[in-house]
């Protein structure tokens, strides 16, 4: 009897190990993320391992390699290399869902052949996280022309605007012990991600979109002109000290209404105010809302969603990256034209 139990248990364990190995092999193609490492320079919360292979089939289909620093760029970065345009942002800029050459940074690189464009966009880097690390990023890369900060959300409590630039954190966000353990195996990482999706759906949150930023449930006042103005003033001073120009690039979520029209989820008055304040403080501001609407109405394309995920939600697809890059170029050219008295070289 005992012998039989041992034999059956042995078979189950062996089968489990074989199945696990097969699933791990499968995930090496389907869901392969590099190891997460600490970023010693404090430019971002974390970095991927350098020169590491990645692949994603959960949303879009894409594969590539990180550069030496662990960011998604076509080439390595060596200390002292010039950077003209620095792209900071969330998983939209990280662009693991599209081939690297279709990402916003790659499109900018192609259309600005004389400028060095460097991308440090990473998952879970919302606007506040990007701001916390901005001084370190500017200090390291010294972007000579522009620093683009991509975000899906610009509505925060005033106290966040008041304090964010003063924090100057270099440390990363702590991840749970469980995550640290599972990241050693691609299949376990995928299961962890699936569990997070399940938990989000149970909590009623929208699990689809990048980085799942939601408005703070805080009852504190948000986006008052004074608080935002002071924040932008600090940001301008920071940028000026670093010799760069800042562009805050905002792209809201969008969804299709029952009548076929497109609903862009943007607080128009707040964004208009943000735009005016940015203009007053010499900061570029991009709101992709109008472009999203125009592209939908004229070409029936949506900036988010993939054929193996959901319609119109999730991360930037190839069309979304193209729209975003187009608009960023337009903003950069406008800022250059407005600043042409101080510059001798055109943008391109």
């Amino acid at each position: 009897m005992m012998g039989r139990i041992v034999k059956v248990t042995g078979k189950i364990c062996l089968s489990g190990i074989l199945a696990f190995l097969a699933l791990t092999l499968f995930c090496m193609a389907y869901y392969h993320l590099p190891a997460r490492l600490e970023d010693p320079d404090g430019v971002t919360d974390f970095r991927w391992a350098g020169h590491a292979f990645y692949s994603r089939g959960t949303e879009g289909f894409a594969a590539g390699r990180t550069n030496n620093e662990g960011y998604i760029n076509e080439s390595d970065y060596l200390p002292g290399d010039p950077v003209d345009v620095l792209v900071i942002g969330s998983s939209h800029m990280e662009a693991l869902q599209v081939p690297e050459k279709e990402s916003t940074a790659a499109i900018l690189r192609k259309r600005l052949p004389d400028l060095a464009v460097y991308n440090v966009g990473l998952s879970n880097h919302d606007f506040l996280t990007c701001m916390r690390h901005l001084p370190a990023a500017l200090n390291k890369y010294h972007p000579a022309r522009f620093t683009i900060i991509e975000t899906v959300n610009l509505i925060f409590p005033d106290y966040e605007f008041e304090s964010i630039l003063r924090r100057n954190e270099t440390g990363g966000t702590e991840r749970s012990r469980v995550y640290e353990l599972v990241q050693k195996n691609h299949y376990l990482r995928l299961l962890y991600s699936q569990l997070e999706s399940y938990r989000k759906s149970q909590a009623g949150a929208q699990g689809d979109n990048a980085d799942n930023i939601s408005d703070s449930p805080d009852a504190a006042p948000k986006n008052s002109a004074e608080a935002v103005g002071r924040f932008l003033s600090q940001l301008h001073d920071l940028a000026q000290a670093a010799g760069t120009k800042i562009i805050i690039a905002y792209h809201p979520k969008a969804s299709i209404n029952a009548d076929g029209s497109l609903q862009v989820w943007s607080d128009v008055s707040t964004m208009r105010q943000f735009d005016e304040l940015c203009h007053q403080h010499g900061i570029g501001f991009l709101d992709l809302s109008d472009r999203i609407q125009t592209e939908y109405q004229q070409r029936n394309v949506l900036p988010y969603g993939f054929i193996n995920s959901a319609v119109g939600s999730g991360h930037f697809n190839a069309e979304g990256h193209r729209m975003f890059a187009d608009e960023l170029l337009r903003i950069m050219e406008e800022m250059e034209r407005a600043d042409s008295a101080e510059r001798s070289e055109p943008l391109r």
Binding site: S15, F26, Y30, L190, Q194, S197, K200
Partner: peptide, 26 residues
């Protein structure tokens, strides 16, 4: 399922369902 290949196939199927499945709102 009395054999290792059979059991492995079953566990692989369950594992694959967990990997490929959509567990958002459903």
């Amino acid at each position: 399922l009395r054999t290792v290949p059979g059991m492995t196939a079953l566990l692989f199927l369950i594992g694959l369902a967990l990997a490929l499945g959509y567990f958002g709102e459903s």
